[in-house]
């Protein structure tokens, strides 16, 4: 299990990297390598050109902006887990990191890599979808942003053009909302069979001002339904409402059978996890609302 040969570039600036990418349409970007290298070791990926961006310090930032945070594509999982800004502004990201792989994987894997890999059963794509992150995407010619919900197209397929790479993420702060993520994996650190994440903002009257729900592992991309979310506005949160939501989602999703879980099993997991995620989000929304009132 050794990787095939490739042409290797180690650019020192983003411009240099993007230039290389425009010259080599079949190039692969190497960031943390936690998904790409296994594919190469198994010879399931044979990239002709590898552009190693690990030296691009300009992609390692975590910065506060007017809207929330700007996170460089090379920020690694352990940094998302530990960085004070992440913990304060997007606490669910820090929390979700505990569910991602194992310590050694989190040492190397990056936010940009995880999103570009577009595994619908991975945690960060679910959060990107839940919180409507914008992905900053660059080519030698231009920079643009792609909303998360337009970025993921199918299993491991994204809206990136061959000469583009993800250089960063813009995420609104969700510190004012109550949010929770939960998943079911057979063993600790395994890819989850299903993931559910929810975020709730309460009105002063303790009714739902807004609710968001995203799922992983139940479709070819992270699943979300804003129309359905809108129908929850103004309702009083309660276990019975969560049961209704769970039931609705169980019927709305269309997962497939695979080696480890049948479609029916995934439906039941999704239903269960959605209820749990909403209940967890509500607890925190109440806290957030209390804090808001005190402030």
């Amino acid at each position: 299990m050794k990787p095939p040969a490739f042409q290797y570039y180690q650019p020192h600036t983003l411009d240099e990297a993007l230039q290389l990418l425009s010259e080599h349409g079949d190039a692969k970007i190497l960031a943390g390598g936690q998904s790409l290298i296994p594919m190469m070791n198994m010879r399931l990926a044979h990239p002709d050109v590898l552009i190693d961006i690990n030296g691009l310090t300009e992609l390692t930032h975590i910065k506060e902006t007017d809207q929330g945070l700007a996170i460089g594509a090379l920020v690694r999982h352990y940094q998302l887990e530990q960085h004070p800004l992440i913990q304060r502004k997007v606490p669910l990201v820090a929390e979700a990191e505990h569910l991602i792989g194992h310590p050694a994987i989190r040492s190397r894997g990056t936010i940009g890599g995880s999103l570009s890999h577009a595994d619908p059963a991975a945690e960060l794509p679910v959060l990107a979808t839940l919180f409507d992150w914008e992905l900053v995407v660059s080519s030698a010619a231009a920079e643009r942003t792609i909303p998360a919900r337009e970025f993921f197209l199918s299993y491991f397929i994204t809206a990136l053009a061959p000469d583009e790479m993800v250089t960063g993420v813009r995420t609104p702060s969700h510190a004012h909302a109550g949010a929770h993520i939960t998943e079911y994996a057979v063993r600790a650190g395994d890819f989850a069979l299903a993931i559910a994440a929810a975020s709730i903002v309460l009105n002063a009257s303790d009714t739902i001002q807004s609710a968001r729900i995203a799922l992983g592992g139940v479709a070819d991309i992270p699943w979300r339904d804003p129309d359905f979310e809108a129908s929850l506005q103004g309702q009083s949160p309660s276990p019975s409402l969560w049961r209704e939501v769970g039931q609705h989602i169980k019927e709305a999703i269309d997962p497939t059978d695979d080696l480890h879980a049948s479609a029916d099993y995934r439906r039941q997991l999704a239903q269960t996890l959605v209820e749990k995620a909403l209940a967890g989000a509500l607890e925190r929304a109440k806290l957030a609302e209390m804090k808001g009132r005190q402030a």
Binding site: M42, V186, R187, A188, G189, D190, F191, L259, H260
Partner: peptide, 28 residues
């Protein structure tokens, strides 16, 4: 609880890595 070498009907092994063939870990 976890481990099984699953073969398709035409004899293809489907669990040929530690991701699909699951050994118990420290947590389990």
């Amino acid at each position: 609880l976890y481990e099984e070498m699953i073969y398709s009907e035409d004899g293809q092994p489907l669990t040929t890595s530690f991701l699909d063939y699951r050994l118990p870990g420290a947590v389990e």
